[in-house]
């Protein structure tokens, strides 16, 4: 009997695949899917006191969300900040990845490792280091004041949306370089030569061949940066000030001091939905645009 089972197991690729997958699958089910379901259920409930939640079904929390303009405003701001973070990161890392893929001949891996070196320090330390750079007594202000170019420190450097965008872009740059580099490095160099040979300049070749072929990496980088930065609440709290507060800060307080779990859950669900929609839209548009370009 057991030998038959053994036989079935060894012949079935599917059985083997599930065995390999099972640790991750168990983790995902209990640590991701289950809490997610709990959260979705909670979003249809009502907080009635500090510790009590009324479990009867209601869409009231979603109505709350849309009736108070602050929520939509914060959601829009989260998306806007993440959009600019993604854009800034792509604009700074694409040329780097391009350079490593096409111009570095030896020790490409060393370049990649060096590029990610700053990211071996803690995330919090990196955010704090931007406070040191942008703050009133920070590197930029003291340098400008030291040279006599300004008398008063520039206050607009820190505690606003721009500071959040700069800090997040830097924090996530390493994650963008890798997918971009991989997709660029994979491009067969003879395709570029074929394009020159067929009458295109280097610039035209970039837009007609290199960029469309690097799109999987671009989409990967966009998703890798956009999705986690929309929900980031540490950076806005440390460098954002009131102007840089995002929806995630609100959600954090709803699950904390404000103590309204259902409204927090509803906000989180809406944020998740928005992220999914944006991600789908980005992928769709990028593909369409690239088709048109080549």
């Amino acid at each position: 009997m057991s030998s038959t089972l053994q036989n079935i197991y060894f012949r079935s690729d599917q059985a083997k695949a599930y065995t390999l997958l099972s640790p991750a699958l168990i983790l995902v089910i209990f640590a991701m899917a289950a809490p997610m379901i709990v959260m979705i259920f909670t979003s249809f409930n009502t907080q009635i006191s500090m510790i009590e939640i009324d479990r009867t079904f209601t869409t009231g929390r979603y109505e709350d969300f849309f009736s108070k303009p602050i929520f939509s405003m914060l959601l829009f701001r989260s998306v806007k900040i993440s959009f600019f973070v993604t854009l800034l990161t792509l604009l700074t890392t694409y040329p780097l990845a391009y350079y490593i893929a096409f111009y570095v001949k030896k020790n490409k891996m060393l370049w990649i490792v060096l590029m990610t070196l700053p990211f071996w320090t803690s995330y919090l330390l990196r955010v704090f280091s931007w406070r040191v750079i942008l703050g009133n007594k920070g590197v930029i202000n003291s340098a400008l004041m030291g040279t006599g170019m300004i008398d008063e420190p520039l206050g607009f450097l820190l505690y606003n949306q721009a500071a959040v965008i700069i800090t997040l872009s830097h924090a996530w740059a390493a994650f963008a370089i890798l997918p971009l580099y991989v997709s660029l490095d994979k491009i067969d160099k003879s395709l570029l030569e074929a394009s020159y040979d067929l009458g295109n300049t280097k610039f035209e070749t970039f837009w007609r061949v290199t960029f469309p072929l690097s799109l999987p990496g671009v989409i990967g980088a966009i998703l890798i940066i956009f999705i986690p930065t929309v929900g980031d609440y540490v950076t806005p709290q440390l460098v954002g000030g009131t102007d840089g507060r995002m929806l995630s800060n609100m959600i954090q307080s709803l699950f904390g001091r404000a103590n309204n779990f259902p409204l927090g859950a509803a906000s989180a669900v809406l944020m998740l939905t928005t992220v999914c929609l944006v991600a789908a839209l980005v992928t769709y548009i990028t593909k369409k645009v690239s088709m048109r370009m080549s």
């Binding site: 003879s190 395709l191 030569e193 074929a194 040979d197 295109n200 061949v209």
Partner: peptide, 27 residues
């Protein structure tokens, strides 16, 4: 791109992201 010559590559170098029609139109 400015020479009156064209090349057939050893690995053919067909652009994978566009179809045959667009490949031929490319130049």
């Amino acid at each position: 791109n400015l020479r009156p010559s064209n090349m057939v590559f050893q690995n053919y170098a067909i652009f994978p992201h566009i179809n045959v029609q667009r490949n031929i139109e490319f130049g």
